[in-house]
Design a protein around this nucleic acid. Structure first.
Lengths: 157, 157
DNA sequence: CTCTCAATTGAGAATTATTATCAATATTAG
DNA sequence: CTAATATTGATAATAATTCTCAATTGAGAG
């Protein structure tokens, strides 16, 4: 586990403690996965990865924990039209994503700030803007290369 | 019906004809609603609005039509984490939205182009970027004013 | 260490938005 | 008008997610 992931996991754990909630082994494992994963896993993906260490873990536990961590501001959720939300515990604040339409992978590019546009949007609308979601959709380098081959199933990672 | 909405409706109808598909009264009514609505209705909202003129219309028909129009590129879909996609038939291309976290309304602000950031994202990632989604979230002027009152239910408009 | 209490779990049921199935119906080209 | 095939509505099915509840557990106090 990287120092970054350790920091994220500690932050999540601290938030739970501060809220008087318990740190169960299941929760710790889920939060760790959220903190470590660069690939923005969905609930199903998290569950599948944890089954080996927690053979009896219930999907409900994964959903609950993920929602809890999100509600505490320590993870963010990215929802898609075909169902299946994806989660990010590494960067639990608004940031842009690039999503491959073929394989479903999601990456976090380093891009300039959306601050100007946010202010512009607030001025144009009179809204008090709190957050944003910015996703770019396209084909990743790997899928572009494999264009003539069968595309793997997307989503639900 | 405004000239803009008429133009949108005609474009949708033409797309269906061009695809060898039939223009049923239900489809026309749904597409008209999509073309006219500035408020980005969801499937349920469309269905509720059409019940008076088509008492027997099935929700399945709404879902099917909306999906069809979307797949023909004449409407776009905005999905949210708590379920319930919203649709836009007026501007069936990527454009920014501002979403009120309190009442759920969605507006289309006039903002500057995202072209620079798109190019930046493509360069940073090697992706071939086709489209984007940009939503800002906050509190609309009306809900800000009514801050001390009970917030109406969101979504599903 | 033990006890207590309230949070948490897992199993199974429930929910909800959406999609699939199919017989009856309707659109539209010729 | 006829025929062909797309489309509808009614109903069932699906899938992601949330709810319910008895059993279990984490963690603080003593």
């Amino acid at each position: 586990m990287s120092a970054t992931a350790r920091k994220r996991l500690d932050a999540m754990a601290a938030k739970l403690k501060a809220s008087g909630l318990k740190l169960t082994p299941q929760r710790l494992a889920i939060m760790r996965l959220l903190a470590e994963s660069e690939d923005h896993p969905g609930a199903d993906g998290i569950w599948r990865r944890l089954k080996r260490r927690f053979p009896g873990i219930s999907p409900a536990t994964v959903y609950r924990t993920v929602q809890l961590v999100k509600s505490l501001g320590e993870a963010c959720e990215i929802a898609f039209a075909d169902g299946g939300s994806r989660y990010d515990g590494r960067k639990p604040y608004p940031h842009p994503h690039i999503v491959c339409l073929a394989c479903g992978r999601i990456i976090d590019p380093e891009l300039g700030s959306l601050g100007d546009m946010t202010r512009e949007a607030a001025a144009a609308s009179g809204f008090e803007i709190k957050t944003f979601r910015l996703d770019f959709f396209g084909t990743c380098p790997e899928c572009s290369k494999n264009k003539t081959k069968t595309m793997p199933t997307r989503r639900k990672k």
